[in-house]
Write a protein that binds this DNA or RNA. Sequence first.
DNA 1: TTGTTAATGATAATGATTATCATTATAAGT
DNA 2: ACTTATAATGATAATCATTATCATTAACAA
Lengths: 144, 144
Amino acid sequence: MSNHEWEKVLKKHNIKVTSSRMAIVEVFEENRKHLSAEEVHEYLKKGDQKAGIATVYRNLDLLTKVGILHRVNFGDGKDHFEITQRPIHHHHLVCNKCGRVVDYSEIMGESEFVSYLEKELTQRYGFKIESHQIYFYGLCDKCR
Amino acid sequence: MSNHEWEKVLKKHNIKVTSSRMAIVEVFEENRKHLSAEEVHEYLKKGDQKAGIATVYRNLDLLTKVGILHRVNFGDGKDHFEITQRPIHHHHLVCNKCGRVVDYSEIMGESEFVSYLEKELTQRYGFKIESHQIYFYGLCDKCR
DNA sequence: TTGTTAATGATAATGATTATCATTATAAGT
DNA sequence: ACTTATAATGATAATCATTATCATTAACAA
Ligand SMILES: [Mn+2]
Ligand SMILES: [Mn+2]
Ligand SMILES: [Zn+2]
Ligand SMILES: [Zn+2]
Protein backbone atom coordinates (compact mmCIF):
# COMPACT_ATOMS: atom_id res chain seq x y z
CA MET A 1 0.00 0.00 0.00
CA SER A 2 1.39 3.38 -0.97
CA ASN A 3 1.91 6.32 1.28
CA HIS A 4 -1.00 8.03 -0.40
CA GLU A 5 -3.34 5.15 0.35
CA TRP A 6 -2.70 5.45 4.08
CA GLU A 7 -3.56 9.14 3.94
CA LYS A 8 -6.92 8.29 2.43
CA VAL A 9 -7.65 5.92 5.30
CA LEU A 10 -6.78 8.60 7.85
CA LYS A 11 -8.93 11.22 6.13
CA LYS A 12 -11.84 8.84 5.94
CA HIS A 13 -11.68 8.71 9.73
CA ASN A 14 -11.22 12.47 10.12
CA ILE A 15 -7.74 12.02 11.47
CA LYS A 16 -5.13 14.57 10.57
CA VAL A 17 -2.24 13.52 8.38
CA THR A 18 0.75 14.56 10.45
CA SER A 19 4.39 13.98 9.75
CA SER A 20 5.01 11.86 12.86
CA ARG A 21 1.99 9.78 12.04
CA MET A 22 3.16 9.04 8.54
CA ALA A 23 6.71 8.48 9.74
CA ILE A 24 5.44 5.75 12.06
CA VAL A 25 3.57 4.03 9.25
CA GLU A 26 6.72 4.19 7.17
CA VAL A 27 8.72 2.51 9.92
CA PHE A 28 6.40 -0.46 9.61
CA GLU A 29 6.51 -0.44 5.83
CA GLU A 30 10.29 -0.45 5.83
CA ASN A 31 10.63 -3.03 8.62
CA ARG A 32 8.07 -5.74 8.20
CA LYS A 33 8.38 -6.96 11.75
CA HIS A 34 6.59 -6.99 15.08
CA LEU A 35 7.68 -3.76 16.73
CA SER A 36 7.09 -2.52 20.26
CA ALA A 37 6.46 1.16 20.96
CA GLU A 38 10.01 1.58 22.18
CA GLU A 39 11.39 -0.06 19.05
CA VAL A 40 9.37 2.24 16.82
CA HIS A 41 10.68 5.15 18.86
CA GLU A 42 14.24 3.96 18.28
CA TYR A 43 13.73 3.63 14.54
CA LEU A 44 12.38 7.17 14.38
CA LYS A 45 15.41 8.49 16.24
CA LYS A 46 17.63 7.22 13.44
CA GLY A 47 15.60 8.97 10.76
CA ASP A 48 14.91 12.64 10.26
CA GLN A 49 11.29 12.79 11.43
CA LYS A 50 11.57 12.06 15.16
CA ALA A 51 8.64 11.82 17.60
CA GLY A 52 8.19 11.77 21.36
CA ILE A 53 7.46 8.45 23.01
CA ALA A 54 3.96 9.59 24.01
CA THR A 55 3.20 10.43 20.42
CA VAL A 56 4.40 7.01 19.38
CA TYR A 57 2.06 5.31 21.86
CA ARG A 58 -0.88 7.49 20.88
CA ASN A 59 -0.39 6.83 17.20
CA LEU A 60 0.15 3.10 17.53
CA ASP A 61 -3.18 3.02 19.29
CA LEU A 62 -4.87 5.20 16.72
CA LEU A 63 -3.43 3.39 13.72
CA THR A 64 -4.60 0.14 15.26
CA LYS A 65 -8.12 1.51 15.74
CA VAL A 66 -8.43 2.44 12.07
CA GLY A 67 -7.03 -0.91 10.99
CA ILE A 68 -3.71 0.17 9.54
CA LEU A 69 -1.83 -1.70 12.27
CA HIS A 70 -2.49 -4.88 14.22
CA ARG A 71 -1.73 -5.30 17.90
CA VAL A 72 -0.23 -8.63 18.99
CA ASN A 73 0.74 -9.99 22.38
CA PHE A 74 3.47 -12.57 22.76
CA GLY A 75 3.44 -12.70 26.53
CA ASP A 76 6.61 -10.69 27.06
CA GLY A 77 4.88 -7.88 28.92
CA LYS A 78 4.61 -5.38 26.12
CA ASP A 79 2.42 -4.92 23.09
CA HIS A 80 3.81 -5.36 19.61
CA PHE A 81 2.45 -4.03 16.37
CA GLU A 82 2.64 -5.01 12.72
CA ILE A 83 1.22 -3.61 9.54
CA THR A 84 -2.13 -5.12 8.60
CA GLN A 85 -1.80 -7.51 5.71
CA ARG A 86 -4.70 -7.93 3.35
CA PRO A 87 -6.43 -9.92 2.13
CA ILE A 88 -4.51 -12.81 3.65
CA HIS A 89 -3.85 -12.55 7.31
CA HIS A 90 -1.54 -14.69 9.36
CA HIS A 91 -0.96 -16.11 12.82
CA HIS A 92 1.98 -16.72 15.12
CA LEU A 93 4.29 -19.37 16.46
CA VAL A 94 6.00 -18.33 19.68
CA CYS A 95 9.08 -20.07 21.08
CA ASN A 96 8.75 -20.67 24.81
CA LYS A 97 12.51 -20.75 25.21
CA CYS A 98 13.98 -17.84 23.22
CA GLY A 99 10.84 -15.82 22.53
CA ARG A 100 11.28 -15.92 18.77
CA VAL A 101 8.08 -15.29 16.84
CA VAL A 102 7.43 -16.77 13.43
CA ASP A 103 4.56 -15.71 11.20
CA TYR A 104 2.69 -18.37 9.37
CA SER A 105 0.18 -17.56 6.68
CA GLU A 106 -2.96 -19.59 6.76
CA ILE A 107 -2.63 -23.30 6.16
CA MET A 108 -4.87 -24.88 3.54
CA GLY A 109 -8.37 -25.18 4.86
CA GLU A 110 -7.75 -22.90 7.81
CA SER A 111 -9.83 -19.90 6.79
CA GLU A 112 -12.74 -22.18 5.90
CA PHE A 113 -12.54 -23.86 9.28
CA VAL A 114 -12.36 -20.56 11.10
CA SER A 115 -15.44 -19.37 9.23
CA TYR A 116 -17.26 -22.49 10.33
CA LEU A 117 -16.19 -21.88 13.92
CA GLU A 118 -17.35 -18.29 13.77
CA LYS A 119 -20.73 -19.33 12.48
CA GLU A 120 -21.11 -21.88 15.27
CA LEU A 121 -20.00 -19.44 17.95
CA THR A 122 -22.32 -16.71 16.74
CA GLN A 123 -25.19 -19.17 16.89
CA ARG A 124 -24.32 -20.52 20.32
CA TYR A 125 -23.26 -17.41 22.18
CA GLY A 126 -24.81 -14.54 20.26
CA PHE A 127 -21.39 -13.02 19.62
CA LYS A 128 -20.91 -10.96 16.48
CA ILE A 129 -17.34 -11.94 15.72
CA GLU A 130 -15.07 -9.33 14.17
CA SER A 131 -11.62 -10.87 14.34
CA HIS A 132 -9.58 -13.69 15.76
CA GLN A 133 -6.03 -14.52 16.75
CA ILE A 134 -4.34 -17.88 16.97
CA TYR A 135 -1.11 -18.48 18.84
CA PHE A 136 0.91 -21.68 18.89
CA TYR A 137 3.55 -22.03 21.58
CA GLY A 138 6.44 -24.45 21.62
CA LEU A 139 10.12 -24.77 20.83
CA CYS A 140 11.56 -23.32 17.66
CA ASP A 141 13.94 -25.27 15.44
CA LYS A 142 16.97 -23.68 17.10
CA CYS A 143 15.82 -24.35 20.67
CA ARG A 144 14.40 -27.84 20.54
CA MET B 1 -9.55 -32.53 41.16
CA SER B 2 -9.26 -32.89 44.89
CA ASN B 3 -7.04 -30.91 47.17
CA HIS B 4 -4.90 -33.99 47.63
CA GLU B 5 -4.35 -34.36 43.90
CA TRP B 6 -2.86 -30.89 43.64
CA GLU B 7 -0.42 -31.73 46.42
CA LYS B 8 0.78 -34.71 44.44
CA VAL B 9 1.47 -32.48 41.45
CA LEU B 10 3.47 -30.07 43.60
CA LYS B 11 5.49 -32.84 45.21
CA LYS B 12 6.26 -34.35 41.83
CA HIS B 13 7.90 -31.04 40.94
CA ASN B 14 9.71 -30.75 44.31
CA ILE B 15 7.67 -27.75 45.28
CA LYS B 16 6.68 -27.33 48.89
CA VAL B 17 3.04 -27.60 49.82
CA THR B 18 2.47 -24.34 51.66
CA SER B 19 -0.74 -22.98 53.04
CA SER B 20 -0.77 -19.86 50.86
CA ARG B 21 -0.08 -22.01 47.83
CA MET B 22 -2.99 -24.29 48.52
CA ALA B 23 -5.23 -21.38 49.44
CA ILE B 24 -4.61 -19.88 46.01
CA VAL B 25 -5.52 -23.12 44.27
CA GLU B 26 -8.69 -23.25 46.35
CA VAL B 27 -9.65 -19.75 45.27
CA PHE B 28 -9.67 -21.01 41.70
CA GLU B 29 -11.56 -24.15 42.59
CA GLU B 30 -14.26 -22.18 44.36
CA ASN B 31 -14.47 -19.46 41.72
CA ARG B 32 -14.22 -20.99 38.27
CA LYS B 33 -13.36 -17.71 36.63
CA HIS B 34 -10.52 -15.80 35.03
CA LEU B 35 -8.84 -14.06 37.93
CA SER B 36 -6.08 -11.45 37.93
CA ALA B 37 -3.39 -11.46 40.62
CA GLU B 38 -5.11 -8.59 42.38
CA GLU B 39 -8.43 -10.40 42.32
CA VAL B 40 -6.90 -13.53 43.83
CA HIS B 41 -5.35 -11.34 46.49
CA GLU B 42 -8.76 -9.87 47.29
CA TYR B 43 -10.38 -13.28 47.58
CA LEU B 44 -7.68 -14.38 49.99
CA LYS B 45 -8.25 -11.31 52.14
CA LYS B 46 -11.82 -12.42 52.71
CA GLY B 47 -10.77 -15.90 53.85
CA ASP B 48 -8.62 -16.93 56.77
CA GLN B 49 -5.41 -17.84 54.92
CA LYS B 50 -4.20 -14.49 53.61
CA ALA B 51 -1.07 -13.93 51.50
CA GLY B 52 1.04 -10.97 50.42
CA ILE B 53 0.65 -9.73 46.87
CA ALA B 54 4.20 -10.79 45.98
CA THR B 55 3.44 -14.31 47.12
CA VAL B 56 0.33 -14.30 44.99
CA TYR B 57 2.30 -13.30 41.90
CA ARG B 58 5.03 -15.84 42.59
CA ASN B 59 2.57 -18.65 43.06
CA LEU B 60 0.42 -17.81 40.06
CA ASP B 61 3.58 -18.05 38.04
CA LEU B 62 4.67 -21.29 39.66
CA LEU B 63 1.28 -22.95 39.45
CA THR B 64 1.17 -22.02 35.78
CA LYS B 65 4.60 -23.54 35.19
CA VAL B 66 3.54 -26.90 36.65
CA GLY B 67 0.31 -26.83 34.66
CA ILE B 68 -2.20 -26.40 37.46
CA LEU B 69 -3.16 -22.95 36.17
CA HIS B 70 -3.39 -21.42 32.72
CA ARG B 71 -2.39 -17.87 31.90
CA VAL B 72 -4.63 -15.92 29.54
CA ASN B 73 -4.43 -12.43 28.10
CA PHE B 74 -7.51 -10.50 27.12
CA GLY B 75 -5.75 -7.29 26.16
CA ASP B 76 -6.69 -5.33 29.27
CA GLY B 77 -3.13 -4.87 30.41
CA LYS B 78 -2.98 -7.57 33.04
CA ASP B 79 -2.65 -11.32 33.05
CA HIS B 80 -5.53 -13.51 34.09
CA PHE B 81 -5.44 -17.08 35.30
CA GLU B 82 -7.82 -20.00 35.35
CA ILE B 83 -7.61 -23.55 36.57
CA THR B 84 -6.46 -25.98 33.90
CA GLN B 85 -9.30 -28.11 32.64
CA ARG B 86 -8.56 -31.60 31.42
CA PRO B 87 -8.90 -33.42 29.16
CA ILE B 88 -11.04 -30.93 27.27
CA HIS B 89 -9.63 -27.48 27.04
CA HIS B 90 -11.39 -24.39 25.87
CA HIS B 91 -10.88 -21.04 24.15
CA HIS B 92 -12.21 -17.53 24.53
CA LEU B 93 -14.60 -15.00 23.07
CA VAL B 94 -13.75 -11.44 24.07
CA CYS B 95 -16.20 -8.55 23.74
CA ASN B 96 -14.51 -5.48 22.25
CA LYS B 97 -17.06 -3.19 23.89
CA CYS B 98 -17.55 -4.33 27.49
CA GLY B 99 -14.59 -6.67 27.87
CA ARG B 100 -16.71 -9.64 28.83
CA VAL B 101 -15.03 -12.99 28.27
CA VAL B 102 -16.94 -16.15 27.43
CA ASP B 103 -15.40 -19.60 27.47
CA TYR B 104 -16.27 -21.95 24.70
CA SER B 105 -15.36 -25.59 24.81
CA GLU B 106 -14.08 -27.01 21.59
CA ILE B 107 -16.50 -27.12 18.70
CA MET B 108 -16.94 -30.41 16.88
CA GLY B 109 -13.95 -31.06 14.67
CA GLU B 110 -11.85 -28.37 16.27
CA SER B 111 -9.31 -30.52 18.07
CA GLU B 112 -8.81 -32.63 14.96
CA PHE B 113 -8.24 -29.53 12.88
CA VAL B 114 -5.80 -28.09 15.39
CA SER B 115 -3.86 -31.36 15.35
CA TYR B 116 -3.64 -31.14 11.60
CA LEU B 117 -2.41 -27.56 11.84
CA GLU B 118 0.20 -28.53 14.41
CA LYS B 119 1.49 -31.29 12.21
CA GLU B 120 1.75 -28.94 9.24
CA LEU B 121 3.46 -26.25 11.25
CA THR B 122 5.97 -28.65 12.75
CA GLN B 123 6.83 -29.83 9.29
CA ARG B 124 7.14 -26.38 7.76
CA TYR B 125 8.84 -24.45 10.53
CA GLY B 126 10.52 -27.08 12.67
CA PHE B 127 8.56 -25.96 15.71
CA LYS B 128 7.77 -28.54 18.37
CA ILE B 129 4.36 -27.27 19.39
CA GLU B 130 3.33 -27.61 23.03
CA SER B 131 0.17 -25.56 23.30
CA HIS B 132 -2.07 -23.11 21.53
CA GLN B 133 -4.57 -20.40 22.26
CA ILE B 134 -7.41 -19.11 20.15
CA TYR B 135 -9.16 -15.80 20.76
CA PHE B 136 -12.21 -14.51 18.97
CA TYR B 137 -13.02 -10.82 19.33
CA GLY B 138 -16.31 -9.16 18.64
CA LEU B 139 -19.48 -7.91 20.27
CA CYS B 140 -21.28 -9.98 22.88
CA ASP B 141 -25.01 -10.52 22.82
CA LYS B 142 -25.59 -7.64 25.24
CA CYS B 143 -23.42 -5.16 23.35
CA ARG B 144 -24.29 -5.75 19.74
C1' DT C 1 13.70 -31.99 67.28
C1' DT C 2 16.81 -29.95 64.28
C1' DG C 3 18.96 -28.08 60.18
C1' DT C 4 18.67 -26.73 55.52
C1' DT C 5 16.52 -24.17 52.40
C1' DA C 6 12.49 -22.75 49.94
C1' DA C 7 8.77 -19.60 50.82
C1' DT C 8 6.89 -15.48 52.55
C1' DG C 9 5.78 -10.50 53.26
C1' DA C 10 6.76 -5.76 53.32
C1' DT C 11 8.22 -2.67 50.33
C1' DA C 12 11.39 -0.67 46.93
C1' DA C 13 12.34 -0.82 42.10
C1' DT C 14 11.30 -1.44 37.42
C1' DG C 15 9.01 -1.19 33.02
C1' DA C 16 5.17 -0.23 30.14
C1' DT C 17 1.60 2.74 29.35
C1' DT C 18 -1.39 6.80 30.19
C1' DA C 19 -2.47 11.56 31.81
C1' DT C 20 -1.46 16.44 31.97
C1' DC C 21 -0.82 20.71 29.96
C1' DA C 22 1.51 24.28 27.59
C1' DT C 23 2.94 24.79 22.78
C1' DT C 24 2.62 23.79 17.80
C1' DA C 25 0.95 22.17 13.36
C1' DT C 26 -2.92 20.86 10.39
C1' DA C 27 -6.76 21.82 7.66
C1' DA C 28 -10.91 24.35 6.72
C1' DG C 29 -12.69 28.63 5.62
C1' DT C 30 -11.98 33.43 4.23
C1' DA D 1 -2.00 33.51 1.40
C1' DC D 2 -4.04 34.72 6.20
C1' DT D 3 -6.94 33.37 10.21
C1' DT D 4 -8.75 30.43 13.21
C1' DA D 5 -10.38 26.37 15.63
C1' DT D 6 -8.76 22.49 17.34
C1' DA D 7 -6.34 18.16 17.01
C1' DA D 8 -1.63 16.73 17.69
C1' DT D 9 2.68 16.93 19.89
C1' DG D 10 6.40 16.62 23.45
C1' DA D 11 8.25 16.81 27.95
C1' DT D 12 7.41 14.72 31.92
C1' DA D 13 4.64 13.36 35.88
C1' DA D 14 1.55 9.77 37.25
C1' DT D 15 -0.29 5.23 37.23
C1' DC D 16 -0.51 0.36 37.07
C1' DA D 17 1.19 -4.31 36.82
C1' DT D 18 4.88 -6.99 37.86
C1' DT D 19 9.51 -8.15 39.70
C1' DA D 20 13.51 -7.69 42.90
C1' DT D 21 15.40 -7.37 47.53
C1' DC D 22 16.15 -9.05 51.93
C1' DA D 23 15.21 -10.14 56.56
C1' DT D 24 12.13 -13.51 58.75
C1' DT D 25 9.42 -17.79 58.82
C1' DA D 26 7.66 -22.27 57.63
C1' DA D 27 8.16 -26.88 55.30
C1' DC D 28 10.09 -31.15 55.52
C1' DA D 29 13.84 -34.57 55.27
C1' DA D 30 16.85 -36.68 58.32
MN1 LIG E 1 2.90 -11.32 12.48
MN1 LIG F 1 -11.35 -19.64 30.17
ZN1 LIG G 1 13.57 -20.63 20.30
ZN1 LIG H 1 -20.03 -6.87 25.58
